[in-house]
């Protein structure tokens, strides 16, 4: 009896694992299909510009405001801790490195997944549920080329821009708190930051991270929308899955990328 229950448990774990692997594989295949059918997006770039508006511009407010607050909190907390060691001037280094290396790309991607990723899934899912994708297919227009690819590229282009804006805004927030509010020396704040932050190793790596996150979020969002069951529950479930899977993917990819970047792959 106990053996039976244990076996059932193990079987359940196996089943879940297989399903996750299957889903990841299917998303990757879909990503490949999207890239294959991207010619239209670049020939008619106004389609992508439209999606940059919906994914990027409309995420601007949440990204800028969150960036500012995160930077301010980092400034406060950093100053609090660093003054115990008499090195308040290093607060600029702390704020800048945390943002540029980690928080900028990761938090911006998490916000992007819940703001723009879910919207992409819901939109494509609803287009499928109302037969708009079928209609397009019957008009001899490939929905992956016409609907999915522009949204994918719009998101992929927006993501690094948003991450950089988040970091820049956060550093301004840190500056406001540390220099303007608390009175850390202005010159030391910037010069220490400049001495510690390396363009190639910190800033470019941060941008590479955000680009990878952008690809992951957009691939998941478009895939979930395209494969959503054509019902109300189907679309709402797909939207939730987009946010959950994207967030997990962002954090897992961040670990892998950080490990590679710290070890140095070049």
């Amino acid at each position: 009896m106990a053996l039976e229950a244990t076996l059932r448990g193990i079987r359940l774990v196996g089943d879940k694992t297989l399903r996750i692997v299957e889903r990841v594989g299917a998303t990757a295949v879909f990503l490949g299909l999207t890239v294959m059918h991207s010619a239209t997006s670049f020939r008619r770039f106004d389609l992508v510009i439209r999606e940059i508006f919906y994914a990027g511009v409309q995420s601007l407010i949440i990204i800028l405001v969150s960036g500012l607050f995160v930077g301010m909190v980092l400034g406060l907390q950093g100053h609090e801790t660093l003054q115990n060691y008499g090195s308040e001037q290093s607060v600029g280094v702390l704020v800048a490195l945390s943002l540029v290396r980690e928080l900028g790309p990761v938090v911006a991607a998490l916000l992007f997944a819940s703001r723009a990723g879910s919207a992409i899934t819901a939109e494509i899912g609803l287009m499928k549920a109302t037969e708009q994708l079928s209609a397009m297919e019957m008009m001899a227009i490939n929905p992956i080329a016409r609907v999915v690819a522009p949204r994918f590229w719009g998101g992929v282009i927006s993501m690094p821009l948003l991450a950089m804006l988040f970091s820049a805004m956060g550093i301004i927030g840190g500056y406001l708190v540390a220099v303007v509010l608390i009175g850390v020396d202005d010159g030391a704040f910037w010069s220490q930051m400049q001495a510690a932050v390396d363009f190639r190793h910190d800033i470019v790596n941060g941008i590479i991270k955000s680009l990878v996150f952008g690809i992951a979020v957009c691939a998941i969002a478009t895939f979930e929308g395209f494969e959503a069951p054509p019902t109300a529950e189907g679309v709402s479930g797909a939207t939730t899955r987009t946010v959950v899977s994207s967030s997990l993917a962002i954090l897992a990819l961040d670990l892998v990328l950080t490990a590679f970047m710290l070890k140095g792959w070049n």
């Binding site: 939109e123 609803l126 287009m127 109302t130 037969e131 708009q132 079928s134 209609a135 397009m136 297919e137 019957m138 008009m139 001899a140 490939n142």
Partner: peptide, 20 residues
């Protein structure tokens, strides 16, 4: 198939107009 479909028109059950 796509070449053939250009000579086809289809009206879907609830219209399936592009909502955007």
């Amino acid at each position: 198939l796509y070449a053939l479909r250009r000579r086809l028109g289809m009206l879907f059950q609830f219209g399936a107009l592009f909502t955007d």
